[in-house]
């Protein structure tokens, strides 16, 4: 919102610099001047359930993502004055004031909400009845915080993160006005790759799927821990972006990331017959043989479910323990022997 108007300030500065040099604060641009208070880091309270509520808005970070062209009121449409009562929870599926340029309609996240509703994460089952443990099913905000742009650039054939000044300069030779070129550049290039670093995606799924109580309620394995034991998980933990995170394998082919189905659904990307195709996705295991699908990804070393792994693990752990603790004991006693070299229970003659 600030960026959107800063060009106006720029223009007015040039025009009436002598008159209003000090009267054009960059910050006051929304109708209610929300930022007048919300720019203070300490604007906060503790709510009735003991939760810490912080109302601070970091303008710099707010302006680093796709929502920067929205005004506060576009989402928080219940606020009409200040000081205001506690705000109502934002409904992401509502229409905002941004006009969607391809269809000239007002923008909304409604279609995403619809996709989510028919996925494994939807609150209703196939017959339209509420699934048990309703409060466990996610809303937008359970997975998403304020999104950031993650632009990429291609310079001299190398791809690297960040905005390419060279590219933006080219855009700006025609699109001179304001920040349109920067906005558009970041909007498009952020979609050329994942909008989140894989580790963040994994931590996000882990918020529920690693919670033992949650898993018990829904009879789910600890898929996050078992995933982190795979090469996929380990390489991502070491900073790779080239290997598969949760979404790469679990999103239904050809759909957006919000359509994740249970592995028991035939449409699911991880349904038995779909696994080879999922592994062979472009950029992944394209050369793989059909048997790669037989590799077990989420191994929990449960004796009933994964007997081979369980017994191999027991064998190796036993082997390691026996060999090493034997030698550790040997060395310990050898050192002890050196402390009292002349002592012995039975003295032998030469």
């Amino acid at each position: 919102m600030i960026r959107r108007y800063s060009h106006i300030f720029g223009a007015s500065l040039v025009a009436i610099v002598s008159l209003t040099l000090y009267s054009a604060p960059v910050v006051a641009d929304d109708e209610l001047d929300c930022i007048m208070c919300h720019k203070y880091r300490g604007l906060s309270r503790i709510d009735e359930d003991g939760e810490f509520r912080l109302f601070y808005i970091n303008q710099e970070l707010f302006n680093s993502g796709p929502h920067r062209r929205n005004q506060c009121k576009d989402c928080h449409n219940d606020i009409d004055r200040i000081p205001h009562k506690p705000a109502v929870k934002v409904d992401c599926a509502q229409q905002c004031h941004i006009v969607e340029p391809s269809g000239e309609k007002r923008f909304t996240h409604e279609s995403i909400a619809e996709t989510l509703a028919r996925s494994a994460h939807g609150k209703l089952d196939a017959e339209g009845n509420p699934k048990p443990f309703q409060e466990d099913y996610p809303d937008c905000k359970d997975c998403h915080d304020q999104p950031f742009y993650r632009p990429v650039s291609v310079d001299k054939g190398t791809i690297h993160p960040g905005v390419s000044e060279r590219a933006v300069t080219r855009c700006k030779s025609c699109h001179k006005n304001g920040d349109f070129a920067e906005d558009f550049y970041e909007h498009v290039t952020s979609r050329l790759r994942k909008t989140r670093f894989p580790m963040e995606t994994i931590e996000n799924c882990a918020k529920c799927h690693q919670d033992p109580e949650f898993r018990e309620r829904h009879e789910l394995d600890d898929v996050v821990t078992s995933y982190k034991q795979t090469f996929h998980g380990k390489l991502i933990a070491l900073g790779s972006e080239k290997t598969a995170d949760c979404l790469d394998c679990h999103v239904v082919a050809g759909e957006n990331t919000h359509l994740i189905e249970s592995q028991s659904e035939p449409a699911s990307a991880v349904y038995k017959t779909n696994v080879p195709a999922t592994c062979g996705t472009e950029g992944c295991h394209t050369q793989a043989g059909p048997y790669l699908a037989g590799f077990q990804t989420h191994v929990t070393y449960d004796r009933e479910k994964y007997p081979m792994q369980f017994y191999m693990l027991i064998f190796f752990k036993g082997l390691i323990a026996v060999v090493l603790y034997f030698f550790l004991a040997l060395i310990f006693f050898e050192l002890l022997r050196r402390l009292f070299p002349n002592f012995t229970f039975i003295r032998e003659k030469r």
């Binding site: 793989a288 043989g289 059909p290 048997y291 790669l292 037989g294």
Partner: peptide
């Protein structure tokens, strides 16, 4: 990738 043309995936496990 190459070996899974001949051997089952569980061998990789």
């Amino acid at each position: 990738d190459e070996v899974t043309h001949f051997i089952p995936g569980i061998v990789l496990n």
